[in-house]
């Protein structure tokens, strides 16, 4: 069976794989090996400029988190009416390489979020506006 293709993404350059098995893509410095998310144009560690694409994987551990309690102004493009805004989780997830990825979280309940908990990559429709295709972004969900 063919894997489901990736949906419409706000950030097509940072996600690879399929809708069922997305992976994050960053870059790696060919000179010193430092890994970046998202892909960097140059290495801020050793000042080299040659980078190659690097897959960061799809699993990590929650490194820090917050709940976005108010609707952000533009350039936020969630598209919902002010009264329909629902707080959402945001966190950093530490990937196996040690790089921390800032990400939307699928959970916005403080009781269900704890630093160190295992997280798994998924895709969420962050923009759902009548008459247009939903726009997705990467997000992390509790893995357990």
């Amino acid at each position: 069976m063919e894997p489901n293709p990736l949906p419409r993404l706000a950030c097509p350059g940072v996600v690879a794989g399929s809708a069922d098995r997305p992976v994050l893509v960053g870059s790696r410095c060919t000179c010193c090996g430092e890994i970046y998310f998202p892909a960097a144009q140059g290495c801020t560690r050793c000042c080299a400029s040659e980078m190659t694409a690097h897959e960061l994987g799809a699993e990590g551990r929650l490194w820090s988190w917050t709940i976005q309690g108010f609707q952000p102004k533009a350039p936020y493009a969630g598209g919902e009416a002010e009264h329909a805004f629902q707080p959402y989780g945001v966190g950093y997830v530490e990937m196996p390489s040690g790089v921390k990825v800032e990400s939307r979280l699928t959970v916005a309940d403080p009781e269900r979020l704890e630093i160190g908990m295992p997280m798994r990559l998924t895709l969420i429709a962050y923009r759902q506006v009548a008459g247009e295709a939903p726009v997705h972004t990467y997000a992390f969900a509790p893995a357990a």
Binding site: Y76, V90, R104, Y126
Partner: peptide, 9 residues
Amino acid sequence: EDWYGETGM
């Protein structure tokens, strides 16, 4: 990139 702002981060 624009997506960083658009997705609310």
